[in-house]
Design a protein around this nucleic acid. Sequence first.
DNA 1: GCCTATAATGATAAATTTATCCTTATGGGC
DNA 2: GCCCATAAGGATAAATTTATCATTATAGGC
Lengths: 123, 123
Amino acid sequence: MYVKKLPELDYGVATTIKALGGKWKACILDCIHLGIRRPSELCRNIPGASLRVLSQQLKELEACHIVYKKVYAEVPLRVEYYLTSWGESLWPVIVAMNEWGNAYLHHHCDSLPQPNAAPCEES
Amino acid sequence: MYVKKLPELDYGVATTIKALGGKWKACILDCIHLGIRRPSELCRNIPGASLRVLSQQLKELEACHIVYKKVYAEVPLRVEYYLTSWGESLWPVIVAMNEWGNAYLHHHCDSLPQPNAAPCEES
DNA sequence: GCCTATAATGATAAATTTATCCTTATGGGC
DNA sequence: GCCCATAAGGATAAATTTATCATTATAGGC
Protein backbone atom coordinates (compact mmCIF):
# COMPACT_ATOMS: atom_id res chain seq x y z
CA MET A 1 0.00 0.00 0.00
CA TYR A 2 1.09 3.50 -0.67
CA VAL A 3 2.21 5.57 2.30
CA LYS A 4 2.62 9.33 2.21
CA LYS A 5 6.03 10.90 2.30
CA LEU A 6 5.12 14.56 2.57
CA PRO A 7 3.36 16.18 5.53
CA GLU A 8 -0.33 16.86 5.07
CA LEU A 9 -2.24 20.06 5.60
CA ASP A 10 -4.91 19.73 8.24
CA TYR A 11 -7.15 22.76 8.23
CA GLY A 12 -10.84 22.50 7.45
CA VAL A 13 -10.97 22.90 3.69
CA ALA A 14 -8.05 20.56 3.09
CA THR A 15 -9.71 17.94 5.26
CA THR A 16 -12.95 18.20 3.33
CA ILE A 17 -11.13 17.90 0.05
CA LYS A 18 -9.19 14.90 1.23
CA ALA A 19 -12.48 13.24 2.19
CA LEU A 20 -14.37 14.19 -0.94
CA GLY A 21 -11.78 15.07 -3.54
CA GLY A 22 -11.12 11.71 -5.16
CA LYS A 23 -12.05 11.57 -8.80
CA TRP A 24 -15.17 9.42 -8.37
CA LYS A 25 -16.11 10.11 -4.77
CA ALA A 26 -18.81 12.68 -5.36
CA CYS A 27 -20.39 10.43 -8.01
CA ILE A 28 -20.32 7.52 -5.62
CA LEU A 29 -21.86 9.49 -2.78
CA ASP A 30 -24.51 10.81 -5.08
CA CYS A 31 -25.41 7.27 -6.13
CA ILE A 32 -25.45 5.99 -2.57
CA HIS A 33 -27.64 8.90 -1.61
CA LEU A 34 -30.02 7.81 -4.37
CA GLY A 35 -30.05 4.23 -3.11
CA ILE A 36 -27.53 2.73 -5.51
CA ARG A 37 -25.47 0.82 -3.01
CA ARG A 38 -23.75 -2.18 -4.55
CA PRO A 39 -20.36 -1.85 -6.24
CA SER A 40 -21.58 -3.55 -9.41
CA GLU A 41 -24.57 -1.20 -9.55
CA LEU A 42 -22.31 1.79 -9.01
CA CYS A 43 -20.10 0.60 -11.82
CA ARG A 44 -23.06 0.39 -14.20
CA ASN A 45 -24.22 3.86 -13.15
CA ILE A 46 -20.88 5.65 -13.34
CA PRO A 47 -19.60 5.52 -16.91
CA GLY A 48 -15.84 5.47 -17.14
CA ALA A 49 -15.15 4.06 -13.70
CA SER A 50 -13.96 0.49 -13.37
CA LEU A 51 -14.91 -1.76 -10.51
CA ARG A 52 -11.31 -1.62 -9.35
CA VAL A 53 -11.27 2.14 -9.09
CA LEU A 54 -14.63 2.26 -7.38
CA SER A 55 -13.41 -0.27 -4.82
CA GLN A 56 -10.43 1.90 -4.05
CA GLN A 57 -12.52 5.00 -3.67
CA LEU A 58 -15.09 3.20 -1.53
CA LYS A 59 -12.36 1.91 0.69
CA GLU A 60 -11.05 5.42 1.22
CA LEU A 61 -14.52 6.77 1.89
CA GLU A 62 -14.95 4.01 4.42
CA ALA A 63 -11.62 4.80 6.05
CA CYS A 64 -12.75 8.42 6.31
CA HIS A 65 -15.98 7.41 8.05
CA ILE A 66 -18.09 8.79 5.22
CA VAL A 67 -19.66 5.47 4.27
CA TYR A 68 -19.96 2.11 5.92
CA LYS A 69 -20.41 -1.32 4.51
CA LYS A 70 -22.88 -4.13 4.98
CA VAL A 71 -21.88 -7.59 3.85
CA TYR A 72 -24.54 -10.24 3.28
CA ALA A 73 -23.72 -13.94 3.45
CA GLU A 74 -25.05 -14.67 -0.01
CA VAL A 75 -23.63 -16.03 -3.17
CA PRO A 76 -22.78 -14.22 -5.28
CA LEU A 77 -21.48 -12.02 -2.54
CA ARG A 78 -23.71 -9.06 -1.75
CA VAL A 79 -22.27 -5.83 -0.37
CA GLU A 80 -24.01 -2.55 0.25
CA TYR A 81 -22.63 0.83 1.20
CA TYR A 82 -24.48 3.41 3.26
CA LEU A 83 -23.72 6.96 4.30
CA THR A 84 -22.64 7.30 7.91
CA SER A 85 -23.82 10.26 9.94
CA TRP A 86 -20.66 12.05 8.83
CA GLY A 87 -21.56 11.29 5.28
CA GLU A 88 -25.02 12.68 5.83
CA SER A 89 -23.60 15.81 7.42
CA LEU A 90 -21.42 16.26 4.37
CA TRP A 91 -24.43 16.34 2.11
CA PRO A 92 -25.26 20.06 2.38
CA VAL A 93 -21.64 20.84 1.59
CA ILE A 94 -21.80 18.66 -1.50
CA VAL A 95 -24.98 20.40 -2.57
CA ALA A 96 -23.34 23.80 -2.15
CA MET A 97 -20.31 22.71 -4.14
CA ASN A 98 -22.51 21.26 -6.83
CA GLU A 99 -24.57 24.41 -7.13
CA TRP A 100 -21.55 26.65 -7.40
CA GLY A 101 -19.94 24.35 -9.95
CA ASN A 102 -23.05 24.12 -12.06
CA ALA A 103 -23.49 27.88 -12.07
CA TYR A 104 -19.88 28.19 -13.10
CA LEU A 105 -20.27 25.63 -15.88
CA HIS A 106 -23.41 27.32 -17.08
CA HIS A 107 -21.66 30.65 -17.28
CA HIS A 108 -18.41 29.49 -18.77
CA CYS A 109 -20.05 26.92 -21.04
CA ASP A 110 -17.07 24.73 -21.79
CA SER A 111 -14.99 22.96 -19.22
CA LEU A 112 -12.44 24.73 -17.06
CA PRO A 113 -9.71 26.42 -19.06
CA GLN A 114 -6.32 24.89 -19.40
CA PRO A 115 -3.62 26.55 -17.29
CA ASN A 116 -2.46 28.81 -20.11
CA ALA A 117 -5.83 30.15 -21.10
CA ALA A 118 -6.01 33.85 -21.84
CA PRO A 119 -6.16 35.98 -18.71
CA CYS A 120 -9.21 38.09 -18.04
CA GLU A 121 -10.34 40.36 -15.25
CA GLU A 122 -13.70 39.81 -13.63
CA SER A 123 -15.10 37.66 -16.40
CA MET B 1 3.19 22.92 -20.35
CA TYR B 2 1.29 19.86 -19.32
CA VAL B 3 -1.80 18.96 -21.31
CA LYS B 4 -4.37 16.46 -20.14
CA LYS B 5 -4.69 13.09 -21.77
CA LEU B 6 -7.77 11.73 -20.06
CA PRO B 7 -11.29 13.17 -20.39
CA GLU B 8 -12.47 15.30 -17.50
CA LEU B 9 -15.64 15.03 -15.49
CA ASP B 10 -17.76 18.13 -15.73
CA TYR B 11 -20.57 18.00 -13.22
CA GLY B 12 -20.86 20.57 -10.46
CA VAL B 13 -18.83 19.07 -7.64
CA ALA B 14 -15.98 18.06 -9.93
CA THR B 15 -15.86 21.58 -11.32
CA THR B 16 -15.69 23.10 -7.86
CA ILE B 17 -12.93 20.74 -6.86
CA LYS B 18 -10.97 21.49 -10.00
CA ALA B 19 -11.22 25.19 -9.18
CA LEU B 20 -10.45 24.89 -5.48
CA GLY B 21 -8.77 21.55 -5.01
CA GLY B 22 -5.12 22.39 -5.55
CA LYS B 23 -2.98 21.83 -2.52
CA TRP B 24 -2.49 25.50 -1.63
CA LYS B 25 -5.50 27.11 -3.24
CA ALA B 26 -7.72 27.40 -0.22
CA CYS B 27 -4.83 28.87 1.79
CA ILE B 28 -4.18 31.37 -0.96
CA LEU B 29 -7.82 32.40 -1.23
CA ASP B 30 -8.03 32.74 2.52
CA CYS B 31 -5.02 35.06 2.52
CA ILE B 32 -6.33 37.12 -0.36
CA HIS B 33 -9.64 37.41 1.42
CA LEU B 34 -7.73 38.76 4.42
CA GLY B 35 -5.91 41.30 2.27
CA ILE B 36 -2.64 39.44 1.79
CA ARG B 37 -2.27 39.94 -1.94
CA ARG B 38 1.33 39.87 -3.05
CA PRO B 39 3.05 36.58 -3.91
CA SER B 40 5.95 37.29 -1.58
CA GLU B 41 3.55 38.07 1.25
CA LEU B 42 1.62 34.90 0.55
CA CYS B 43 4.84 32.94 0.65
CA ARG B 44 5.69 34.35 4.06
CA ASN B 45 2.22 33.59 5.33
CA ILE B 46 1.89 30.05 4.03
CA PRO B 47 4.57 27.88 5.60
CA GLY B 48 5.73 25.08 3.37
CA ALA B 49 4.77 26.65 0.07
CA SER B 50 7.49 27.96 -2.21
CA LEU B 51 7.10 31.00 -4.38
CA ARG B 52 7.23 28.73 -7.41
CA VAL B 53 4.32 26.61 -6.26
CA LEU B 54 2.28 29.63 -5.26
CA SER B 55 2.84 31.12 -8.70
CA GLN B 56 1.55 27.97 -10.31
CA GLN B 57 -1.53 27.84 -8.14
CA LEU B 58 -2.21 31.54 -8.63
CA LYS B 59 -1.96 31.11 -12.34
CA GLU B 60 -4.51 28.32 -12.25
CA LEU B 61 -6.82 30.32 -10.04
CA GLU B 62 -6.50 33.15 -12.51
CA ALA B 63 -7.22 30.87 -15.44
CA CYS B 64 -10.33 29.69 -13.60
CA HIS B 65 -11.55 33.26 -13.12
CA ILE B 66 -11.33 32.97 -9.34
CA VAL B 67 -8.71 35.69 -8.90
CA TYR B 68 -7.38 38.45 -11.06
CA LYS B 69 -4.10 40.26 -11.03
CA LYS B 70 -2.99 43.86 -10.84
CA VAL B 71 0.51 44.71 -11.94
CA TYR B 72 2.09 47.98 -10.83
CA ALA B 73 4.90 49.56 -12.80
CA GLU B 74 7.26 49.67 -9.86
CA VAL B 75 10.64 48.25 -9.08
CA PRO B 76 10.87 45.81 -7.52
CA LEU B 77 7.86 44.60 -9.42
CA ARG B 78 4.62 44.82 -7.47
CA VAL B 79 1.78 42.42 -8.16
CA GLU B 80 -1.47 42.02 -6.30
CA TYR B 81 -4.18 39.40 -6.61
CA TYR B 82 -7.85 40.02 -5.91
CA LEU B 83 -10.90 37.81 -5.82
CA THR B 84 -13.12 38.12 -8.86
CA SER B 85 -16.87 38.04 -8.45
CA TRP B 86 -16.65 34.29 -9.03
CA GLY B 87 -14.10 34.09 -6.28
CA GLU B 88 -16.41 36.02 -4.00
CA SER B 89 -19.31 33.75 -4.85
CA LEU B 90 -17.16 30.80 -3.95
CA TRP B 91 -16.58 32.11 -0.47
CA PRO B 92 -19.70 30.67 1.20
CA VAL B 93 -18.82 27.29 -0.24
CA ILE B 94 -15.32 27.54 1.19
CA VAL B 95 -16.77 28.47 4.55
CA ALA B 96 -19.09 25.48 4.48
CA MET B 97 -16.23 23.17 3.54
CA ASN B 98 -14.07 24.64 6.24
CA GLU B 99 -16.72 24.20 8.90
CA TRP B 100 -17.38 20.60 8.00
CA GLY B 101 -13.67 19.83 7.90
CA ASN B 102 -12.99 21.48 11.22
CA ALA B 103 -15.86 19.64 12.87
CA TYR B 104 -14.48 16.44 11.43
CA LEU B 105 -10.96 17.20 12.65
CA HIS B 106 -12.26 18.09 16.07
CA HIS B 107 -14.12 14.82 16.31
CA HIS B 108 -11.50 12.55 14.88
CA CYS B 109 -8.61 14.39 16.52
CA ASP B 110 -5.73 13.22 14.37
CA SER B 111 -5.54 13.65 10.64
CA LEU B 112 -7.50 11.55 8.20
CA PRO B 113 -6.77 7.86 8.49
CA GLN B 114 -4.55 6.12 6.02
CA PRO B 115 -6.41 3.93 3.52
CA ASN B 116 -5.93 0.79 5.57
CA ALA B 117 -7.21 2.12 8.87
CA ALA B 118 -9.50 -0.16 10.82
CA PRO B 119 -13.07 -0.15 9.56
CA CYS B 120 -15.82 1.13 11.79
CA GLU B 121 -19.52 1.66 11.42
CA GLU B 122 -21.03 5.02 12.20
CA SER B 123 -18.08 6.30 14.18
C1' DG C 1 -16.06 -28.13 -17.78
C1' DC C 2 -16.67 -23.47 -19.08
C1' DC C 3 -19.36 -19.57 -18.78
C1' DT C 4 -21.84 -16.17 -15.90
C1' DA C 5 -21.91 -12.82 -11.78
C1' DT C 6 -20.32 -11.04 -7.39
C1' DA C 7 -16.50 -8.38 -4.52
C1' DA C 8 -11.78 -7.69 -3.41
C1' DT C 9 -6.96 -7.02 -4.01
C1' DG C 10 -1.88 -7.53 -5.95
C1' DA C 11 1.21 -5.81 -9.26
C1' DT C 12 2.32 -2.50 -12.14
C1' DA C 13 1.80 1.24 -15.64
C1' DA C 14 0.22 5.69 -16.83
C1' DA C 15 -1.28 10.13 -15.77
C1' DT C 16 -1.29 14.07 -12.97
C1' DT C 17 0.21 17.14 -9.44
C1' DT C 18 3.59 19.18 -6.59
C1' DA C 19 8.42 20.24 -5.47
C1' DT C 20 13.21 21.67 -6.37
C1' DC C 21 16.60 24.13 -8.64
C1' DC C 22 18.01 27.42 -11.91
C1' DT C 23 17.62 31.58 -14.89
C1' DT C 24 15.86 36.21 -16.34
C1' DA C 25 15.15 41.17 -15.43
C1' DT C 26 15.25 45.50 -12.63
C1' DG C 27 17.09 48.86 -9.34
C1' DG C 28 18.86 49.98 -4.75
C1' DG C 29 22.31 49.29 -0.59
C1' DC C 30 26.82 48.80 0.64
C1' DG D 1 30.77 44.09 -8.27
C1' DC D 2 27.96 41.44 -5.34
C1' DC D 3 24.22 41.28 -2.43
C1' DC D 4 19.24 42.14 -1.50
C1' DA D 5 14.17 41.85 -3.03
C1' DT D 6 10.54 41.38 -6.43
C1' DA D 7 7.76 38.19 -9.91
C1' DA D 8 7.75 34.70 -13.47
C1' DG D 9 8.74 30.63 -15.79
C1' DG D 10 11.85 26.53 -17.87
C1' DA D 11 13.51 22.04 -16.89
C1' DT D 12 13.20 18.25 -14.40
C1' DA D 13 12.51 15.20 -10.30
C1' DA D 14 9.59 13.37 -6.88
C1' DA D 15 5.29 12.29 -5.06
C1' DT D 16 0.64 11.02 -5.53
C1' DT D 17 -3.43 9.43 -7.79
C1' DT D 18 -5.81 6.81 -11.14
C1' DA D 19 -5.99 3.10 -14.56
C1' DT D 20 -5.15 -1.55 -16.44
C1' DC D 21 -4.67 -6.31 -16.16
C1' DA D 22 -4.66 -10.38 -13.57
C1' DT D 23 -6.00 -13.48 -9.84
C1' DT D 24 -8.91 -15.43 -5.98
C1' DA D 25 -13.25 -17.53 -4.30
C1' DT D 26 -18.14 -19.19 -4.59
C1' DA D 27 -22.34 -21.10 -6.77
C1' DG D 28 -25.54 -21.45 -10.61
C1' DG D 29 -26.80 -22.03 -15.90
C1' DC D 30 -26.11 -24.68 -19.70
